[in-house]
Amino acid sequence: MGGPPSAAQRRLVEGADPETGRLRGTEAQLAALVKRGLAFRHPRPPHDHFLTPAGQRIREKEPPAAPEAPASGGVFAARVGGENGTVASGPARLREVRGAWQGLLEMRRMTNRDGATDRPCAWERSHLVRAAALALEAAGHRPEGDGIPGYRVRATPQPEAVAVYAPDEETLRACAATLEEAGWQPGVCTEPRTRVRYLLASPRRV
């Protein structure tokens, strides 16, 4: 939907919860924000609405960031490593990552049966690569890209497991610590033929 948001819509956006981005308004008002790409409706009850990164920029009165590769929901794409300039960087990206991570913690709170935020939720277990990459980027790790070394997160044939590669042993250990703190179970493995060391990480269930 084109054009800037109305004054009433801006007030809704600016009144969102500063930590989680949760919105309050009528169903019609919230649906209009979703249509504009400024909000998304949580898929699980009570179906609250939250700001998207675009909505966060409106609230913070920042100019739009450069286009980035969309996630399946068309809103945010975690950097898995190897994107080479297809996503934005700088302060705007940091805000988007921070907002996405806070949204993920809120999703954990709402969808884990005991409301726990210290372990991954069902969405993360069905989007393993993106979830692990978001945990790493939100903690300040640098993804590989544009000739700059960094982490890479890749799918594996094993159920509920991703592989995380790093340019050196120190970074590998730091990534392991980050994932463990984010509720994952990482273990260092070695590829038999290349002898490359990597992390095999799975989301913790309990």
Rank of each mutant, 00 (worst) to 15 (best):
R24G: 13
T26M: 11
T20D: 05
P167N: 03
R197I: 03
A71P: 07
P91S: 04
Q185D: 05
A155S: 15
L38G: 12
A66S: 15
P70H: 08
P45I: 08
M1P: 15
E27A: 06
V97N: 00
Q102S: 14
A138H: 01
R11A: 15
L134N: 10
P4L: 04
P120G: 06
V129S: 01
T26G: 15
S72T: 13
E170S: 11
P5D: 08
Q56K: 14
K61T: 06
A135M: 12
A7Q: 12
E19Y: 12
T171H: 08
L172M: 01
A8T: 14
P63A: 04
L200N: 02
E124G: 06
A65V: 09
H127P: 04
A78N: 09
E106T: 08
A139N: 02
C175Y: 13
G187F: 06
A201G: 02
V164D: 01
L104F: 15
W184G: 02
P120W: 02
R24Y: 11
T178H: 09
A65T: 11
R130I: 00
A201I: 01
P203H: 00
A177Y: 07
L134P: 10
K35C: 07
N112T: 08
A131V: 08
E191I: 10
R125F: 01
L104D: 15
R109M: 04
R130N: 09
D48N: 05
T194G: 08
V34E: 03
A116E: 14
Q9D: 12
A132D: 05
T194H: 05
A122E: 03
R142I: 06
L172W: 01
A100M: 12
G85C: 05
G3Q: 12
P143E: 09
R79G: 06
A65R: 11
Y165N: 02
L51F: 11
A66P: 15
H42S: 02
R195L: 13
P64V: 02
A8Q: 15
L23V: 11
G150K: 01
R193P: 00
S72P: 00
A66R: 15
V75C: 05
E106G: 04
G90Q: 10
A116P: 11
G147C: 12
P149C: 10
E160T: 01
V162Q: 02
R93A: 09
A138F: 05
T171I: 10
A78K: 08
V34A: 05
L23H: 07
A132K: 02
P45A: 12
Y198K: 03
P18R: 03
A174V: 10
R113S: 13
R41M: 00
P46C: 00
V34R: 02
P45K: 13
E169Y: 06
E96N: 05
A8R: 15
M1T: 14
S72L: 15
I148Y: 09
R113H: 14
K61Y: 01
V188E: 04
A132V: 03
A66D: 15
D48P: 01
P186N: 06
R44Q: 15
E169K: 06
V34P: 04
R152G: 07
P64M: 07
G3Y: 10
T156G: 09
